[in-house]
Design a protein around this nucleic acid. Structure first.
Ligand code: FES
Ligand code: FES
Lengths: 143, 143
DNA sequence: TCCTAAATATGATTTTTGTCATATTTTAAT
DNA sequence: ATTAAAATATGACAAAAATCATATTTAGGA
């Protein structure tokens, strides 16, 4: 479904959503530890997201990664698309190709509607919304 | 979700369910081509399944792979468990660990019920049932 | 201005997954 | 019995994913 890298990236961004602001940047080592991802690894992912303007960063002393208000309106799908590419989620459960709606595989009927919904939530809900749910204690960041 | 290997293996087994019998064995090269999987690769997977008695085989001239009646009562989950191991499907969408029901992640509520249902179908429905659906032309084997 | 703390760029290494090749064993048919 | 046709066992190789390392650039503070 999602690659490890995507999972890591999503956790990191949600962590930033909860803990950072324009004036409160967080450096990699303080991100990697609480979300339990190797520092050099998450650094690379965050750099990629920063380059694509999904998150913000500044270098030098007092620098670090953070989410601007604009960043808070991105979706988890934006992250996934950058890290995993756009095709991965569309693959048929039984083959490497994407769903063939004219010739659905034996599991299509079971899987397609829910996968479609999953994707929709992923692209409709903003980071900010997820962050609110976490703040309210309704859901939790893994690790 | 599923590894490529699992997808390949499932396709091969369903192909055997449709086209083989005790007295009509099929050799790898005649399996690999229609399901579009490299011959040496699917051979290895079939050998694994055969050793675990998910499918049947016999060697020598007129030999090949086939599904006995008993084999037809296995589930797709049996295949997945052998090829991918038992933990893969239980992983949380956002982390490497399995779902923590006390501390559900932000996507848990969306994903857990449907994944649970998916797994249930996978282990409740027999190969024979899937094979019937395909024969009826209601669903199709990919490729 | 210089020093230091941070991200960035780049790429090397390792692990896992996927793929291929081949010698061996078994079995049916002659 | 011999031969040939098949799976089996084993392991080599390749590609992709995950992980680690390091030199460079940027920016704040003394
Ligand atoms: S065709 Fe297989 S999941 Fe849609
Ligand atoms: S806790 Fe994340 S999917 Fe269940």
């Amino acid at each position: 479904m999602l690659s490890n890298s995507s999972k890591y990236a999503i956790k990191a961004v949600l962590f930033l959503a909860l803990n950072s602001k324009d004036n409160k940047k967080i450096m990699v080592k303080d991100i990697s530890e609480p979300i339990n991802v190797p520092q050099a690894y998450i650094a690379k992912l965050l750099q990629e997201l920063s380059k694509k303007n999904i998150i913000s960063s500044s270098r030098g002393p007092k620098g670090g990664f953070y989410l601007s208000n604009a960043n808070m309106d991105n979706s988890l799908m934006d992250i996934i698309n950058i890290i995993d590419g756009e095709k991965r989620l569309q693959a048929c459960v039984l083959s490497l190709e994407k769903c063939n709606l004219e010739k659905p595989c034996p599991l299509h009927e079971l899987v397609y509607p829910i996968k479609t919904k999953f994707i929709k939530v992923l692209q409709d809900r903003t980071i900010k919304e997820f962050s609110t749910l976490i703040k309210q204690g309704k859901v939790f960041l893994p690790f």
